[in-house]
């Protein structure tokens, strides 16, 4: 009967694989042997049942007093802010779509290569972030949301859409995370484009770094920054936007959360204690064209083999798509192994 069914070829059906059949048969045979030989021996049976119970509890539950071999989620999560504006105020043309595709593919490959998490967040214009309705900073909300979404991750790396990871083989750990104290600078005596006060009372620099940002020619740059999960970051994300502060400062805070952070940084020891700065080119190199007032300062601009390029401000009078294509091609060229000639 069964054979008849197998030979009946007028319907679509999964192909039976004789190889698997064979394995199944041999397994059954083994099981039978097991039944006859071992399971009759009640001691071994009990031990086996015990082991399986423990394995089950360890793998699929979270009962206490047992080691759990669960694969934990990624330790680093990339947040990519995509669909900026969402085509609400401006037509989203084919070039915009192309940029988005390139940027997303780039981050996807990078995350996959190093086992990081990646979440792509929609930055469509929303009423609750418009001035009259302002409920929070959008970046802050997305950060909080991602921290909830990846409860095991430690570091969260925010990337704007117009960024491109040029050296995808470098992991964040080897790049700077494993050597944070030496890679970052904590007080602004080294580099201080905003001329903020370098010295605040009570600041204790022995605290760990919980936030890693860069400074460009105009001050703090949040186009590419990292935050570590901690009670400190939870508090910063909670107080970053405050209506009383916003009411007093909204005329001055052109760059929204970026300026708000600068204000907090320049007055509050608790913020200053846990912010570490990286040189711009480390995670956020600029193309020629950004920071055009200081075009001869090598600290800002991309040089071959810098880690990330951020085409900051390309939507204001520059050609985003052209720049993206240029750096995409450049990265491909730079990453080409020496033994490949074409």
């Amino acid at each position: 009967m069964e054979d008849d069914y197998d030979n009946y070829d007028k319907t679509f059906k999964p192909r039976t694989n004789p190889y698997f059949k064979r394995i199944k048969n041999s397994l059954q045979l083994n099981l039978q042997q097991l039944n006859s030989n071992f399971l009759s021996n009640s001691l071994i049976a009990k031990i086996l049942i015990g082991i399986f119970t423990i394995l089950f509890l360890s793998l699929f539950t979270s009962v206490p007093f047992l080691p759990h071999f669960k694969s934990t989620g990624p330790k680093v999560v990339l947040i990519l802010a995509a669909n900026e504006g969402g085509g609400v105020l401006r037509w989203k043309g084919p070039q915009d779509w192309s940029i988005e595709r390139s940027s997303i593919a780039n981050k996807k490959n990078y995350a996959k290569r190093h086992g990081y998490g990646l979440t792509i967040k929609d930055m469509t214009i929303k009423k609750r972030y418009s001035h009259e309705w302002r409920e929070s900073w959008e970046k802050v909300d997305i950060m909080k949301q991602t921290m909830r979404q990846f409860p095991d991750a430690e570091w969260f790396w925010w990337l704007d859409l117009h960024t491109y990871i040029m050296e995808p083989h470098i992991s964040l750990e080897e790049h700077f995370l494993n050597n944070l104290d030496n890679e970052t600078y904590r007080n602004l005596e080294v580099f201080n484009p905003l001329e903020l006060t370098t010295d605040l009372p009570y600041v204790d620099y022995t605290q760990p770094v919980d936030m890693i940002i860069t400074q460009d020619c105009g001050g703090f740059n949040l186009g590419s920054f990292l935050m570590r999960r901690s009670s400190w970051s939870e508090m910063l994300l909670d107080v970053w936007w405050d209506p009383a502060m916003y009411e007093q400062m909204h005329m001055k805070w052109e760059h929204k959360e970026q300026d708000a952070l600068e204000t907090l940084f320049s007055t509050s020891p608790w913020i200053r204690e846990r912010v570490g700065f990286l040189p711009l080119r480390k995670i956020n190199a600029f193309p020629q064209g950004a920071c055009s007032d200081q075009a001869d300062d090598p600290r800002y601009f991309f040089q071959n083999h810098d880690f990330v390029i951020n085409m900051a401000g390309c939507e204001y009078g520059r050609d985003c798509w052209g720049e993206m294509e240029h750096y995409k091609a450049l990265s491909k060229r730079l990453q080409k192994p020496w033994y490949k000639f074409w």
Partner: peptide, 22 residues
């Protein structure tokens, strides 16, 4: 502790001191 200190420092922020509606 770090959170207690942060709360106090946020509370003593200049912008709150200067805010006329308090």
């Amino acid at each position: 502790d770090d959170v207690g200190r942060s709360i106090l420092e946020f509370w003593t922020c200049d912008l709150f001191f200067e805010y006329p509606n308090f």
